[in-house]
Every structure is written in structure tokens, then in C-alpha cells.
């Protein structure tokens, strides 16, 4: 028992230190939001409390961000990422269900193509794709921003892996109860793979949340700009508003972190709910 307790304390200490290391840059970013860029640079070295704690609190960075339309582009980002997560998850989960559960001819070929699809990086095809989009009259629209994010090979892949892990006996039991394939999908597979669905949603979400090149190419009205593009516009030819960059980057980082924290309980309770499996 004694050895196991030392082990546990050591592991907990390691976990705390690692998470502090992960948190420090975020704290620095948040601190830099509430002080002038000059103060941030003046206190970057040597490291002390003043590195992570502003000496003179100010909200000029936040108001500069708001004045430059950051709230509007943040709203665009939220809409685009939100729609992508909902629609993308629906498409991908159904595709993954087919690939994992429903036997059909050429299933492994389809799966191979899905895997290959995410080997080609999006940047490699962005310029020609943007030309096709403008030929189709789609440039400068939310649809143009959302469409490329919907089909995501990685998401289909991960959900397929988790669906394969669901015991077939449960699906058979559902079938005996008279459930069709869609019913089985909805009431057996989805509830059992909630953490995986959250992870898959995160992939879809981050694709749009960090999207930079694509919106830059396809959007020319600043009213439709996504948040990362607005941030990069702080780097002008003759001036860089670093304080604004810090503030906007902090906001952009805090939102997904907050959403994940809210969803954290699914990772914890899942053990109890799936403990009965097999």
C-alpha cells in the first residue's frame, strides 16, 4: 500500500507541474491583455511576478480590439464554427457508422479514400479551390466559409474507430428489440461514444476557429472576416498594435477552453455509464 501511495503522490505532483507549464503561457497572454504592449515587453525578462501580473491595469487593448470590429469577426467565427460542428458531426457520424457497422461492397476502399483525404493538406489545394468557389459565385458568403470544413476525413476516421469499439452484442440486442439501423445508431452508438463525439466536434471546431488562409482568399468584405484574419490585420505596414493582438488572441484561446471545461463532465461520467459494457 505504501509504495502505491508514494506512486500516486508522485504522479499527482507531475500532473500539477505539467499543467502549470501548460497554463503559464495562457496566463501570460491574459496578463498581457490588461497592460500596454510596452509594459509587456519591458517585463518579459528577467522573469518575476510582473511577467504574469500587470503593474498598471488597462482596458485599452480590449477597446482597441472592439473598435477594430473584433466582436463582429468573433461572431462570424462562432457562427461558422458552430454550424460546421453541428452539420459536420451529423455527416461524419453517419459516414463513420456505415464504415464501422454496415457491411457493404467496397467498404474498405471507401475507408482508404477517407484516410487518404486527410493526407492532402488543405493549404495545398486552397488557391485552386478558391478559384472554383468564385467561379461558382460563392465567394464572400458564410456558405463559402462553412463548406470546406464539413467533410473531414479525420473526424470520420476517429468516429469509426470508436464505433468499432462498441460491443456488437448491444447492436444485436437493439435489433432484437425491433430497432432499425438508424434507431441503433441514435440510441446505442451515439450515447456510448459521447467523449469521442466531443473530440470529433473539437476537430471540426478548431479547423474553423483557426482558419486563416481560406477566409483570406475567399472573403474580401471585412464584415465577413473571421477572427484570426482580423488579428493578423493588426500587423500593418507601418504599425503593429501588439496589445490588441494579445487581447484578441487571449479571447480566441479562452472560448474553446471554456467550452471544453463545460463538457469535461462527460469525460468523467462516461466511465460509470459505460462500465456495464461487456
Amino acid at each position: 500500500m505504501h509504495a502505491s501511495r508514494t506512486f500516486r503522490i508522485t504522479m499527482t505532483a507531475v500532473a500539477v507541474i505539467v499543467s502549470l507549464l501548460f497554463l503559464a503561457p495562457v496566463l501570460w497572454l491574459v496578463a498581457s491583455t490588461f497592460r500596454t504592449a510596452t509594459e509587456t515587453f519591458a517585463n518579459s525578462s528577467p522573469v518575476g511576478w510582473s511577467t504574469l501580473w500587470p503593474q498598471h491595469w488597462t482596458t485599452v487593448n480590449l477597446s482597441s480590439a472592439i473598435d477594430n470590429g473584433f466582436l463582429r469577426s468573433l461572431g462570424n467565427s462562432i457562427v461558422v464554427a458552430g454550424v460546421t460542428v453541428v452539420v459536420g458531426l451529423a455527416i461524419s457520424a453517419m459516414a463513420a457508422y456505415a464504415l464501422a457497422v454496415i457491411p457493404f461492397r467496397g467498404r474498405s476502399a471507401v475507408f482508404t479514400i477517407v484516410v487518404l483525404s486527410f493526407l492532402v493538406s488543405f493549404e495545398a489545394i486552397a488557391i485552386p479551390l478558391s478559384q472554383s468557389f468564385s467561379d461558382w459565385g460563392l465567394s464572400n458568403s458564410l456558405v463559402a466559409l462553412i463548406l470546406p470544413g464539413l467533410g473531414n476525413g479525420l473526424v470520420v476516421f476517429t468516429l469509426r474507430q470508436f464505433f468499432l469499439g462498441v460491443p456488437p452484442s448491444l447492436a444485436e440486442a437493439a435489433k432484437l428489440d425491433g430497432a432499425g439501423p438508424f434507431r441503433t445508431f441514435w440510441s446505442v452508438y451515439l450515447p456510448l461514444t459521447k467523449p469521442a463525439l466531443i473530440g470529433a466536434g473539437l476537430i471540426l471546431f478548431l479547423f474553423q476557429w483557426q482558419a486563416y488562409l481560406w477566409p483570406l482568399l475567399i472573403i474580401s468584405h471585412s464584415s465577413l472576416d473571421l477572427a484570426p484574419v482580423t488579428i493578423s490585420k493588426a500587423f500593418g505596414g507601418f504599425s503593429t498594435d501588439y496589445g490588441r493582438v494579445f487581447a484578441e488572441t487571449a479571447i480566441l484561446a479562452v472560448i474553446p477552453a471554456g467550452v471544453l471545461l463545460a463538457l469535461q463532465r462527460y469525460f468523467v461520467t462516461s466511465v460509470a455509464s459505460t462500465g456495464s459494457k461487456e
Binding site: Q131, L216, L217, H221, S222, S232, K233, G237
Partner: peptide, 18 residues
């Protein structure tokens, strides 16, 4: 339309040809 200084050439390449 303000474009980021560092990516201006990519933007022009995409917009002026497409």
C-alpha cells in the same frame, strides 16, 4: 479592404487570377 502585409502577395495571386 485591408489585407495583412505579410500575406498580401498570396491574396493578390488568388484574387487577380481567379
Amino acid at each position: 479592404e485591408a489585407e495583412p502585409f505579410d500575406d498580401f502577395n498570396s491574396v493578390l495571386a488568388a484574387r487577380l487570377t481567379s
